[in-house]
């Protein structure tokens, strides 16, 4: 199956920002968030987009 424009994962440091619905990864610091995002980007073969300082999403294009 080919997914197009689909949010694969959400990485955030702010628990209030995201509800369930997709893979959500809570991180304690911005640094941790960036390293998790970099890893997930490579694993999921998606692009990490920054929505705000505390919220990244990984999207399959």
């Amino acid at each position: 199956m080919n997914l197009e424009k689909y949010i694969l994962a959400v990485i955030t440091t702010n628990k209030d920002k995201v509800a369930a619905g997709t893979g959500v990864f809570y991180c304690d610091s911005k640094q941790e968030m960036e390293s998790v995002t970099a890893n997930l980007e490579a694993i999921l073969d998606g692009i990490a987009h920054g929505l705000s300082d505390e919220l990244y999403v990984i999207v399959k294009h």
């Binding site: 960036e34 995002t37 970099a38 980007e41």
Partner: peptide
């Protein structure tokens, strides 16, 4: 052009 989140990227 596009949105690139990671500062490293």
């Amino acid at each position: 052009i596009m949105n690139i989140g990671l500062p490293e990227r």
